[in-house]
């Protein structure tokens, strides 16, 4: 039972401002993903929650306790590290039981919990082995089992899947989600992989330059990005942007066509649309096709709209060739608008 609250946390390394004014509440049993490119501060934030870094300013609360002055061992957390950190001099059994022994649980209880979590992670047959005799995926399972065996209030994960190959990553992702849902633990998970974030998270916190730009459900983050950065970061390929000029109350001209948009006193806004949210339509945007990439279920078409790059995902039945001109109409309910100055969403 633990809610996590981060209040006004900032972190400086010398001159470098790694985190600025972070406020975040993670609900009990919620699966929160911190998503961002490398250097955005997501790992630093996780390490501050773990107690491996001290915040320069601000407070961290876990449950009813303020913990930012406590050592990691006193915070009721468990952590899964990027490189697993499975102790090479101990067997899998002793690795999983390590934390339990540190908390002086009786042997019988240690044995029971180790076996239970090992079973959960499907590694019962590996208990006698050493880290050196395990594959990457197996080590990963040991690391998760070791964290789960602690039955912590909060489990923290730092890019735990990034060192696995693609297929294994898919498999582990699904398994992690199931196991964590079952354990009803509050989880914070750091990744730079948006697909991973989407698939795992109850909520995603998108981080950029030491700030949390948006914290919302995966669908919300995808559908209604709060800032231009999120729109350009989430989605593969991400949103297309085109400059829009005000041509009347709530009327905007975008690359030669007029679209209905928000009322704003700005002379111009940024128009944004996801590649999959356009359909061929004679009244649409004139797009000169540059590259056509057939991706199986659909076509990824890269075009030029009024001098701006524009990508569209179209039906694979459609026959398109480079050099042609397509007319693409954005779905009105999916169009988003951003203020070019503040980069915030406008509605």
């Amino acid at each position: 039972m633990a809610e996590i609250q981060i209040r006004n946390v900032a972190k400086r390394f010398g001159e470098y401002q790694a985190l600025r004014d972070i406020n975040l509440t993670v609900a009990d049993q919620e699966f929160m993903v911190l998503l961002g490119a490398s250097g955005c501060g997501k790992t630093t934030l996780l390490r501050i929650i773990a107690g491996l870094e001290t915040p320069t300013e601000g407070e961290v609360w876990i449950g009813e306790r303020r913990v930012d002055h406590l050592a990691p061992r006193d915070r009721g957390i468990a952590m899964v590290f990027q490189n697993y950190a499975v102790f090479p001099h101990l067997t899998v059994f002793e690795n999983i039981g390590f934390g339990l022994r540190m908390h002086r649980l009786p042997d019988e209880e240690v044995r029971k919990r180790v076996h239970r979590t090992a079973e959960l992670m499907h590694i019962e047959e590996l208990l006698g082995r050493y880290s050196g005799e395990l594959s990457g995926g197996q080590r990963q399972r040991v690391a998760v089992a070791r964290a789960l065996a602690m039955e912590p209030d909060v489990i923290l994960m730092d890019e735990p899947l990034s060192n696995l190959d693609a297929l294994l990553r898919l498999e582990m992702r699904a398994e992690l989600k199931g196991v964590l849902a079952e354990s009803r633990t509050t989880a914070i998970y750091v990744t730079h992989d948006q697909v991973e974030a989407m698939s795992l998270a109850d909520r995603i916190s998108v981080m950029h330059q030491g700030r949390i730009v948006q914290a919302a459900t995966p669908v919300e983050v995808y559908r209604n990005p709060a800032e231009k950065f999120v729109a350009g970061f989430i989605g593969n390929p991400p949103m297309n942007f085109l400059p829009a000029r005000s041509v009347g109350e709530g009327q905007w001209e975008v690359a030669g066509i007029t679209l209905a948009g928000p009322r704003s006193d700005r002379p111009g806004l940024d128009f944004a649309i996801r590649p999959e949210d356009v359909t061929p339509d004679p009244a649409g945007l004139a797009a000169r096709v540059r590259v056509v990439e057939p991706l199986g279920p659909h076509l990824l078409v890269t075009c030029d709209v009024d001098g701006h790059m524009f990508r569209a995902i179209l039906d694979s039945e459609l026959s398109v060739a480079p050099g042609e001109t397509l007319n693409l109409m954005p779905r009105p309910d999916r169009i988003r608008w951003f203020d070019p100055e503040t980069e915030k969403a406008v509605s």
Binding site: A50, G51, L52, A71, P72, R73, I77, A78, M79, F81, Q82, N83, A85, F87, P88, H89, F98, G99, M102, H103, R146, M150, L156
Partner: peptide
């Protein structure tokens, strides 16, 4: 010796000293 190993020990209930004794020293 990766710092991660020590950090893992800290999160699992070790003090700096006991993490050193149980993890770093044997290695």
């Amino acid at each position: 010796i990766p710092l991660e190993l020590e950090e893992a020990a800290w999160t699992l209930g070790c003090t700096r000293l006991s993490a050193f004794r149980k993890v770093v020293l044997p290695l």
